[in-house]
Design a protein around this nucleic acid. Sequence first.
DNA 1: CTAGGGTTAG
Length: 818
Amino acid sequence: MSTISLISPAKLAPTPTKHSKQSIKTLKNQTLNAAPVQVLKHCIRTRNLELGKLVHLKLNQSGTKLDTVTLNSLISLYSKCGDWFTAKTIFESMEDEVKDLVTWSAMISCFSHNGMESQALATFVEMLKHGECPNQYCFSAAIQACCSKEYARVGGTVFGFVIKTGYFESDVCVGCALIDLFTKGFGDLESAKKVFERMPERNSVTWTLMITRYGQLGCHEDGIVLFLRMLLGGFMPDRFTLSSVVSACAELGFVSVGQQLHSWVVKMGLCLDVYVGCSLLDMYAKCDSREPMEDARKVFERMRDHNVTTWTAMITGYVQSGGLDRTAIELYCKMITQGDVLPNHFTYSSLLKVCGSLSNLEAGRQIHNHAVKSGLVSVNCVGNSLISMYARSGSMEDAQKAFEILLEKNLISYNAIVDGYVKNTSSDDAFKMFNKVEETQTGVDSFTFASLLSAAASLGAVGKGEEMHARLVKAGLDSNQRVCNSLISMYSRCGDIEAAARVFDKMKERNVISWTSIITGYAKHGLAKSALEKFDQMLKAGVKPNEVTYIAVLSACSHVGMVDEGLKHFSSMYSEHKITPKMEHYACVVDLLGRSGSLEKAVDFIESMPLKADALVWRTLLGACQVHGNTELGKLCAEMITEQDPDDPSAYILLSNLYASKGQWEKVVKIRKTMKEKNLIKEAGCSWIEAENQSHKFYVGDTFHPRVHEIYKELDQLVTDIKKLGYVPDTDFVLHELDEKEKEQYLVQHSEKIAVAFGLISTSKNKPIRVFKNLRVCGDCHTAMKYISVARGREIVVRDSNRFHHFKNGLCSCNDYW
DNA sequence: CTAGGGTTAG
């Protein structure tokens, strides 16, 4: 489809005749000397209200009684120039006998074009009462008044009326109105299509209308097919057609078709049309090119006149291109200082998005102020963007305020606030808001479920996730790609990789996110072989990997110690797919080398990096130092981390853990003191588990749970039982200076052990126990879990901050490599 | 004199 080649416009029709300056001048003189009605006609065509008013004044001054045709012309003039009040005054001043069908039609049309649908319909009824028999123009105007969702049902009645007259149904004009009634009023593309296909006579306007409506309902491909049919039918596209078709190309990413259309635009002399220009600009902005925004900028610069829309399209283009956020803001400044245009709601929406993605709260508040001053804050589109901006900048209170003051909350408003809660780890609030949405008529969509599934995933609440799964099936969204991608992540992050794989296998069309999600899932579960197999299949399926895919592939290798394989993929990243490795990728390789014990190679690798290693890379190496007990190198890593990130508590904690494991308690105490002085707080370790659709959270030695006595009784029994199987508490993992007995007692009370004990007494025996921990699982707990899986004959799944551990029959899926 | 089509956002 994207490779279609179009017939040249020259073959379709001769180039439009251009009026010379001389001929335009003569035309104008003729117009001014003509009769008043002729001048009014000219004013209506050119929407020249000034001249029209002058004629109106002259006519009134002449004192003669105006005839129906003149009065009709005046109504039409004021109506089309937006002055509905004067049009209405003239209409009301007319005696009923003077009014003819044209008068009524003009007035109905005036009301409907100026947002007064009910008045338009009342006028239509009044006309019928007067015994007038409507013609195609009246019907068309009356149907147009019904094209909004609220009046669509009335429109149906009018349609029935049209059919009864059996006569105007085939009129081009009535047909167009009906197409709008079905598409805009009912969202029913099928019926609109029927009207269109049955029309005995069509012209360029009809074709363009249908193409445009296809696009507005998201059926861009069908729009292009219709456009091709239009060309084959010999109809000449014009500026209206081209702007719609170019927009369709933008949405579909059909650059080559868009470029052909661009050359038509040039040949037809439509370059300066702001609508066409805007569509072209948007197409180049949305579609990939080697130099982002270069072609869009050229189109922009070649247009002589810029309006808010072209400026905004350009700003939006920079926002969507990613990495050009600053340019977007600069362009906004240029627009308000020299553009001679005022920003509109779309402009603010895009700018707020920039501030959100930069997490620049200050700039966000400034734009917020601009929007307040312009009086556009309460507009839905601006309000929704405000919610997202504040949520992304981590300020949920402001996001909530923006949400509450919205005059009208639509689906996007709810999605924005729900997603805000999810991203700011208040998943409970997200689900509460979801319940509120369900009470309204707003409905939910794929974005709502994507957010909620992510909430369930971060909680590890598989029960919640399954509930959402059931609901989205009910909503008919179970084959939606975005939703399926979220389901894959949810199931895998909740520990059920098999369920994730089932969703993946059932998908009809998979994109790079679908593949990356399942590969990440296998990687986190330590199933490197499956991960790499999927990666292989992905390449064979012709799907291009992205940066995130490579993070998944490299970490899959790293989790199982496949050093050579990992390095191979790292080098193919650029050589085969032209993806430049980022810091995260380098960190993966450092992890790959470091964890396998090649600490020196890891250091060499860091030194050979084209980027200066950041705190993440050094933290990774420090982690490896801890695994391999290398305090010297660990100390160096910690220094490197604190040099770049002096307030990062993780460096201090990792280092203190390293010293503690070596029994160097003076050093531990010293680090603790520094941390206290700097007021650095470490994240408290905690574990949680889902039971009966509720999350139960435990800290070290936690005694707040209502079933605390049962839990500790089970825990004591458990320790006794696994000791019989050979478990020896490894008190090296107690990072405090205590005596052996105390250390052992302390180990027993680690949060992950408490959570497992609770799981054993509260969940059904045939299901695995799924525990989640915010930090990495402790070494002694890891050993204990293996014994517990034997002692209780249960599979235990632990998700820690890094990966999954599946304990079964005394073994762990990580093969103790972690 | 009465009819019909377009651009940008979350």
